[in-house]
Design a protein around this nucleic acid. Structure first.
Lengths: 220, 220
DNA sequence: TAGATTGTTAATCGATTAACAATC
DNA sequence: TAGATTGTTAATCGATTAACAATC
């Protein structure tokens, strides 16, 4: 289970090929580490090493993976490249997915220029701000647009995820607009508690939560 | 449990009063929501509402809390203010904790000026950059210092957590310096896979991991 | 061969959920 | 009182762990 706050409609009837929540979450984590290991030129990695970086028990990792096939080589470990391909196939996230980013402040710029999303097939294809003074500014390959264009851009670009890097007081309004435009996944970097229909998934990013948790074990 | 990657030394002999990892993680999550609810002027909150925002089952929440006392009022819910106080007491994180931030780029500035940490008693008391051109710049109430001053500042200010908002290639070096200076909690916003001694806790922030996970359930 | 690491089993522990009496 | 929500139980399910044969 997750420190991070994600759910979906658990009331839905799950298609038989849908993974349990826990496994999907862990596979995503393995993928993150594998992607970075590949960048560092690693060819193989053992379940023990993966355990060190993902903080998941190594037996659990081997068990998760062996449920889908025999991907490893005894005495050697897993081939990084081919495991990345396999996990992407399992998670069915091999494609490109378009993101719209709201807020062209420091956080928005940091997100737009990070590799974190790009490495996993997420592409920021539009940046919005409600401040007309910022509209027209260039951030990397993109030009800042006004919030008013949200609806048109979501349709044109096939936006799947909306990322809110705006002050808390602006977040709910944008969430409403995104929902109205048909976006079903919202990534909330503001402190606001968002209210959305059940079919929409909100993930609120809380660095301090993880820090509190780490601190508890440091203090005790 | 936990999408987020945090562990501590599980080999240690746990003092009898140490909470199971899962409960500590969830309590941190409740606290985040309660803090925000308090900001919004809410006086009470039900386990069902907390469940909506934290994505933890409402029965689980009531059970977690009832392990420490009867904090709620039947038919009404929990008093927000007093529950914040209780959970802080349980987590023993009522105090102020000093953070050192590395990297004065967009991400560093965003972190320094966010309320996210401050709300939970974490205070950024120093910002470092290795670029001499940035040293001396003011960010809010702080002045950017050069990385060289790390050791002295950690001792003077009693730094408990080091936050890395630097490019991946610079992260391991800073982690080594932090460890050498005695810091035991590192929050890594870079993509680098950090290697540290077992006594040190590293949390690597992976927004894309959570997004992949959300997307999986959207696509299936 | 010797060493390392996978794949898998079995046993334990914690999380999840539904249900409901107690009570505000 | 009627409605809502807590506190708690019991039953189920998934995660964790140790152990080890298989095999690279």
């Amino acid at each position: 289970m997750g420190l991070s706050g994600l759910t979906t409609d658990r009331d839905d009837i799950l298609p038989p090929d849908r993974l349990p929540l826990g496994i999907a979450a862990r596979l995503s984590r393995y993928l993150q580490t594998l992607t970075q290991a590949r960048k560092m030129g690693r060819e193989t990695i053992s379940s023990k090493e993966l355990a060190t970086y993902t903080h998941v028990n190594s037996t659990q990792i081997r068990r998760d993976l062996s449920g889908f096939g025999k991907f490893g080589k005894r005495g050697v470990g897993y081939n990084v490249e081919s495991l990345v391909v396999q996990i992407r196939k399992i998670l069915r996230t091999s494609g490109q997915h378009n993101i719209a980013l709201f807020g062209a402040g420091h956080l928005g710029r940091a997100i737009a220029s990070s590799d974190g999303f790009a490495d996993h097939g997420f592409r920021v294809v539009a940046i919005f701000d409600r401040d007309s003074a910022k509209v027209g500014e260039r951030i990397g390959p993109l030009t800042v647009r006004h919030n008013d264009e949200l609806r048109a851009v979501v349709e044109e670009q096939g936006i799947v995820v909306g990322v809110l890097a705006v002050p808390g007081h602006a977040a709910q309004g944008l969430a409403d607009d995104l929902v109205a435009a048909g976006v079903r996944i919202i990534f909330n970097y503001s402190e606001a508690l968002l209210t959305v229909p059940p079919a929409v998934t909100v993930h609120t990013s809380n660095p301090a939560v993880d820090l509190l948790y780490a601190l508890y074990f440091y203090l005790t």
